Simulated scan of single mutants.
Amino acid sequence: MDRAPGLSVRVKLTLSYAGFLMLAGVLLLAAMWIFVLRHLPAYTSVPGGVLVRSFLLRDFASAAGAVLLFLLVFGLVGGWVLAGRMLAPLNRITHATRTAASGSLSHRVRLPGRQDEFRELADAFDTMLAQLEAHVAEQQRFAANASHELRTPLAVSKSLLDVARADPSRAGDELVHRLHAVNTRAIDLTEALLLLSRAGRRSFTREHVDLSLAAEEAAETLLPLAEKHGVTVDTSGDIAPTLGSPALLLQLATNLLHNAIVHNLPEGGTVWIHTGAGPGTVVLTVENTGEQVSPQLVPTLTEPFRRGTERVHTDQAGVGLGLTIVKTITQAHDGTLTLAPRSAGGMRITVELPAASPHTGR
């Protein structure tokens, strides 16, 4: 933004200090005039002679002018020094802001001293820079991973087409089948990226949603997949009203259930889906049996394209964005996502969202 040039804050503070000091001096001299000198008699006997009031007032005026001049100079010099000391922390914050604006997010103010308004501002600015740096790093990793994931099916398709062109006698049905599988994966990945972008922008209308109904619909949709994997799905709980996007919250429940089914025991596994409502919140909990998950692995499961390596079945690996989408949808609905390994194996994932009145929709 272009602004007209003006006085600096330091100059303004200096003038304010000097002006206040001058005003205090004028008031003090006026008080002396009103309450002391004004009531002196015209002639006053003092040891060694007679004191004439007119001469005293003339000397007082001369001395008062000198005092005011001294106060003006002292106020300007002292105000300039004091303003510089007071604004030194602000200069450090300004320097850090310009450094961040140039692209260096690793710089921090780290203002020393006891807590005050400037230190509070500096600490808040450092916190913002740390969060922004982490967010930018995450976005860079995501962009790199997404580019790699999108390039893979395209490279495979190109290889298949090159082979088919080099060997015209090769069976066409097999080529079509493999190209269809690769193309399906590319479409799934693209749709997942678009859904992730939509949820992150919060570009949706908030409506009244019952999480228990979303969980039941997700269970019915994925029942064939559960039967294929030999997994039993147990759905229970109470009404869990919240405000949000019905489509996104259904996608959240579907992703959680899909993840719980796929990453389960080879056979005889179980998934428990439970919904509930508390004071001001609603909760969706999905638990599953499965292999032991190390606590060190849990924080990485919501990162893009992290599939838990050995826990993934090759035929249902997905695109590596299932829990990332769940996390983004949860944050877009002002909720919290908690992942914890079960002592008996498997995971417990809890989504907590703000509650809404089931009658008023607020």
Rank of each mutant, 00 (worst) to 15 (best):
A96M: 04
G200M: 09
L193K: 01
T152N: 10
A101I: 06
D126P: 04
G318D: 12
T232Y: 10
G290F: 00
L297W: 09
Q316R: 08
A24H: 07
A134K: 06
A186M: 09
V319Q: 02
L265T: 12
V319S: 03
M32A: 15
R306M: 11
A31G: 11
A137P: 02
L161Y: 09
H208F: 10
N288F: 00
L257N: 00
G113K: 00
R151W: 11
A218N: 05
G79A: 05
L337Y: 06
F204Q: 00
G322S: 13
V176C: 04
A253R: 00
E149F: 02
W272Y: 13
S245H: 04
R98E: 15
A146Q: 05
P41N: 10
A88Y: 02
R92I: 04
L339A: 03
R201M: 06
L23W: 14
L7V: 08
A88F: 02
G172Q: 12
K158F: 12
P246K: 09
T330N: 05
G308F: 04
T205V: 14
A181G: 09
T281V: 13
T275L: 06
V156R: 08
R58N: 14
V36Q: 12
L189V: 01
T350G: 04
S16F: 15
R306I: 14
A144T: 14
G75F: 02
I261E: 01
T205P: 03
E220K: 12
T242V: 10
N183Q: 10
R3G: 06
M86L: 15
Q292I: 11
S169D: 06
A240D: 04
A226G: 05
R170H: 07
A344D: 15
H107N: 07
S54Y: 09
I325W: 04
R306V: 15
M128N: 10
E227C: 03
L175S: 11
L249K: 02
A214G: 01
S157W: 01
R201H: 11
L87W: 11
L175G: 10
H208A: 14
G172T: 12
H263M: 08
L87A: 08
L121A: 15
P224K: 04
L284P: 02
G103E: 03
R206G: 05
D210M: 07
A218M: 06
G78S: 12
G65V: 10
L72T: 14
